[in-house]
Design a protein around this nucleic acid. Structure first.
Lengths: 119, 119
DNA sequence: TAAACATATGAGCAACTGTTCAAATGAAAG
DNA sequence: CTTTCATTTGAACAGTTGCTCATATGTTTA
């Protein structure tokens, strides 16, 4: 009991299982990067932008009208989407047209929809 | 000019395109729910938990050792994962075993990995 | 019964995030 | 050149989030 109190580190409950899983799992850094990617999908404004762009290339002004938000707010989010390489920019005069830059975007959205439809 | 200054609402740049996309897009609420789902994937701790559970059913203590975190922190995140129906709990005595509760989890993670591998 | 244990929960706090606002670019038109 | 316009950027602020700590549940064992 006294011995137990000194060592307050938690005992492993299933040591062999934990070791096995620890060896199988990807590196923490890789999983952190993956989480960063999904964080970009985890905002309703960005999700609406991605959904819109899945149908049609759009400029910032179009998006701001479509979403009912200021061009500034949209531009900030587009910067985030560009950083994640989910969106690509094409400049034509003053106007900047955005479109999806990744074939996986629609796939990820589709699977998410499936999950919600079943839940 | 004076007329222009009074009406400071933004003009639509490509009205027909915006209308078309507006009709195609899912409802805002559905996209918001989808964003909420991806928000759950958008945290490195939760991602590590999901990754671990993709190999093996694990109890809270195992997870806390595996992740090097307190059982409390892990339990809080498991509650979030349970709320999103990504994880299921099985109770055996004092011990609660968690496992993936969704076939789509692995698919979503796999596509995310693909995106990172190409970027 | 009481003690030990695995897990869950609530409050509190530091860190992060999305929007607004004002100002800056950069490009076309007068 | 100057003005106008589309977009971008930075600072600031409110709202959110994940962890810690203390405590509460619920279960097993002595």
């Amino acid at each position: 009991m006294a011995r137990r109190e000194l060592e307050d580190k938690p005992e492993v409950m299933h040591p062999d299982v934990v070791k096995k899983v620890a060896k199988c799992m990807p590196a923490d850094e890789e999983l952190a990067d993956l989480a960063e990617l999904f964080k970009v999908f985890g905002d309703s404004t960005r999700m609406r932008i991605l959904s819109a762009l899945s149908y049609q290339e759009l400029c910032v002004n179009d998006l701001s009208v479509l979403l009912g938000m200021t061009a500034s707010a949209v531009s900030h989010q587009l910067k985030t989407l560009r950083g994640a390489k989910l969106v690509r920019a094409r400049k034509d005069g003053k106007v900047v047209y955005y479109s999806l830059d990744d074939e996986h975007v629609n796939a990820i959205i589709a699977i998410g929809m499936q999950h919600m439809a079943e839940g």
